[in-house]
Design a protein around this nucleic acid. Structure first.
Length: 492
RNA sequence: CGGGGCGUGGCGCAGCCCGGUAGCGCACCUGCUUUGGGAGCAGGGGGUCGAAGGUUCGAAUCCUUUCGCCCCGACCA
C-alpha cells in the first residue's frame, strides 16, 4: 500500500490517494467513467436510504424513466438544448457486425442498423419526463405530481475527477408539477431545505443555501437554488441543486391542465437533484492524512472488532468473547465485523481500518478479556478509550453520536475561520491569491462584471444566500450600488 | 483542444542516454516462528515492457504513428 500523499503537500493527489486507499472507486476502461467499489457504493446506499425516506415523508413517490431519449426531445426547450448539447453521448446504431481487418477480427457498427432517429443518453431527464407528464396530467385534480427517480446520467465532460465530475454518475432527480407558481416555488425551497438538512445533519457538512445568478442557472430554469459546502482546501463545492422551472418545460411539452373554473393553464414545474458527487464532498470535508473519515450516519458498518492473541488458547478465549460483543452490539448498531485474519498483526489492521474510515475500532486482547474490558478507538480524533464491557453498548453509541457532532462542529469552525466579509477589491484579490475561502461581498448583479471577476481571479459567485440581509453597499469590483451581499469562492 | 510529465507483474519503481537471456521493493502463494500500532526467515508463482508500424542478426531501449493516465489551462453539474 503506497502512502497517502499529505493534504499539505498536494491536496488533489491526497484526494485521489484517499479514494484508492479506502477502496472507494477506480477509473474504468472508458475515460471519465468510474467503477464504484463496495466501500464507496455502501456510502451511496446509506445516502440513498436517508434521502429516499425523507422524500417519501415529504409526499414523493419513485418511478423510473428510460436511459435513452429521442434526439428531437432535447431540442424542444431552447435554453435546455443550449446547456446540454455539447456534452451528450449519441446512439446511432443498434447492432455490431464482425469484420476482418489485417487478419484480425474486430467489430464495427452495422451500417444496415443505423437508427432513423438517433438517441441521446440522458444528461438529465426533464425532456422524457415532461413528454410523459403531458399524457398524465389533464385536470387540476391530477396535481401535484411529485415523482423522484434514482438513475444514472451521462455528461461527456472534458476533464473528470473521481466522484466530483465523472462522465457517468448516479443521482436522484425529482420532477414535480404544480397548479400554481407559488406552489412550485414552495416545493423548490422545500427540497433545498431537505438537502440542507441532509448535508448538515447526516453528512456533517455545513452548507450555504442560496439562489444562483442567471449565468449559473440550470439550463431551462427560472431560478436555481444550491447548497454550497466548503472543502478542506477552502474551495466551494456545489452539493445539491433545486430548480424552479416555471412553465418553461410545460410550454415546450404542452403540459396543460384544466382548472376548477374550466380554464386551461400550463403547469408549473420543479426539478432537484443530488449525485455521487456528494461522496467527493464527504471525503473532502472530513478525511485526513491517514485516510477516509466519514460521519457515522453514512457508515454502513459502524465498528470493527480487532482481536489480539498470542497462542491458540488466547485465540479461542478472545474470539469467543469477540462473538459475545458482536451479538451484544448488533441490536444497537447492526453487524459488527470481527477481523480475525491471522496473516496480519494488529498494527497492520489498525492502519487499514483507519484508511477505510471505520468509525470505531474495538481492540480486544487476553488482558482485556481478563479485565472485562476493551480498548475503543475513535477514528475522527484518533483517541483510545479503556471501556468496561458492561458499558460497551452505551459507550459505542455515545461515541458515534459524539463523532457525528464533532465532525460537524469541526467543519463549521473551519468554514467560519475561512469566511470573510470584504469591502474592497484589494482585500478580495489578496484573499484569493492567498488562502482562499468564502467571501461575502456586495455585487452589482451585472453578468459582465461577474464574468470579469472570474476571468481575473477564477472566483465565482456561488450563490446569493437566502439569509442575506438587505444592506446598501457597493460592488466589490465595479463600485456600482448593491442591496445585498453574495457568496464568492473558487469552486470545484 | 493547447502546454508539461508519465506508461515496464496487483501497486510503486529501476533498466532506456550507450540495442545483446526483464530486474528490485511491497503485495500474493507455501511452511515455520510471530501477533497490545504497519512482523521475521526460507521457498515459490506471476510481466506479449500501453498499442501498431519501422530500422536491425537482435528492440523495454533507436525512429514514426497512435492510445491512455496525471498536472496546468480552455470547458463544465
Amino acid at each position: 500500500m503506497a502512502d497517502i500523499t499529505k493534504r499539505s503537500v498536494d491536496y488533489s493527489r491526497w484526494y485521489l490517494d484517499v479514494i484508492q486507499a479506502a477502496e472507494l472507486a477506480e477509473n474504468s476502461p472508458v475515460r471519465g467513467c468510474m467503477v464504484i467499489r463496495p466501500n464507496g457504493y455502501s456510502i451511496w446506499e446509506m445516502m440513498q436510504r436517508w434521502l429516499d425516506d425523507r422524500f417519501k415523508e415529504l409526499g414523493h413517490v419513485n418511478a423510473y424513466f428510460p436511459l435513452l431519449i429521442p434526439k428531437s426531445f432535447l431540442a424542444k426547450e431552447a435554453q435546455h438544448v443550449e446547456g446540454f448539447a455539447k456534452e451528450c453521448a449519441i446512439v446511432t446504431h443498434s447492432r455490431l457486425k464482425t469484420v476482418e481487418v489485417d487478419g484480425k477480427i474486430t467489430v464495427v457498427p452495422d451500417p444496415a442498423s443505423k437508427l432513423e432517429e438517433e438517441l441521446i443518453i440522458r444528461p438529465t431527464s426533464e425532456t422524457v419526463i415532461w413528454d410523459t407528464y403531458r399524457k398524465w396530467i389533464q385536470s387540476y385534480r391530477d396535481l401535484p405530481v411529485l415523482i423522484n427517480q434514482w438513475a444514472n446520467v451521462m455528461r461527456w465532460e472534458m476533464r473528470t475527477r473521481l466522484f466530483l465530475r465523472t462522465a457517468e454518475f448516479l443521482w436522484q432527480e425529482g420532477h414535480t408539477a404544480h397548479a400554481t407558481a407559488e406552489e412550485a416555488r414552495e416545493e423548490t425551497l422545500k427540497m433545498l431545505e431537505c438537502y440542507r438538512w441532509f448535508a448538515e445533519d447526516i453528512l456533517a457538512m455545513p452548507v450555504v443555501c442560496g439562489a444562483k445568478t442567471p449565468r449559473e442557472r440550470f439550463a431551462g430554469a427560472v431560478e436555481t437554488f444550491s447548497i454550497e459546502g466548503m472543502m478542506q482546501d477552502n474551495k466551494a463545492l456545489q452539493a445539491g441543486t433545486s430548480h424552479d422551472l416555471g412553465q418553461n418545460f410545460a410550454k415546450a411539452f404542452e403540459v396543460k391542465y384544466q382548472t376548477s373554473e374550466g380554464t386551461e393553464e400550463f403547469v408549473w414545474a420543479t426539478s432537484w437533484g443530488v449525485s455521487t458527487r456528494l461522496i467527493g464532498a464527504l471525503i473532502m470535508s472530513h478525511s485526513d492524512d491517514a485516510g477516509l473519515v466519514i460521519p457515522p450516519k453514512v457508515a454502513q458498518r459502524k465498528a470493527v472488532i480487532v482481536p489480539i492473541w498470542r497462542d491458540d488458547e488466547g485465540r479461542d478465549l478472545v474470539l469467543a468473547k469477540a462473538k459475545e460483543l458482536q451479538e451484544m452490539l448488533k441490536p444497537a448498531i447492526g453487524f459488527v465485523q470481527i477481523d480475525d485474519r491471522d496473516n496480519m498483526r494488529p498494527g497492520w489492521k489498525y492502519a487499514e481500518w483507519e484508511r477505510k474510515g471505520m468509525p470505531i475500532r474495538i481492540e480486544l486482547g487476553p488482558r482485556d478479556v481478563a479485565n472485562d474490558a476493551c480498548v475503543l478507538a475513535t477514528r475522527h480524533d484518533g483517541q483510545k478509550h479503556q471501556t468496561p464491557l458492561s458499558d460497551l453498548v452505551s459507550a459505542v453509541t455515545g461515541h458515534l453520536d459524539r463523532m457525528q457532532t464533532e465532525l460537524y462542529e469541526a467543519a463549521l469552525k473551519r468554514r467560519a475561520e475561512n469566511t470573510h466579509r470584504l469591502e474592497t477589491w484589494e482585500e478580495f484579490t489578496a484573499l484569493y491569491e492567498g488562502p482562499g475561502g468564502f467571501a461575502h461581498c456586495h455585487h452589482c448583479g451585472d453578468t459582465a462584471c461577474e464574468e470579469a471577476i472570474q476571468t481575473e481571479t477564477k472566483v465565482t459567485i456561488r450563490n446569493i444566500p437566502l439569509d442575506a440581509e438587505a444592506e446598501d453597499g457597493q460592488c466589490i469590483r465595479c463600485g456600482k450600488p448593491s442591496s445585498k451581499r453574495v457568496l464568492f469562492a473558487q469552486a470545484y
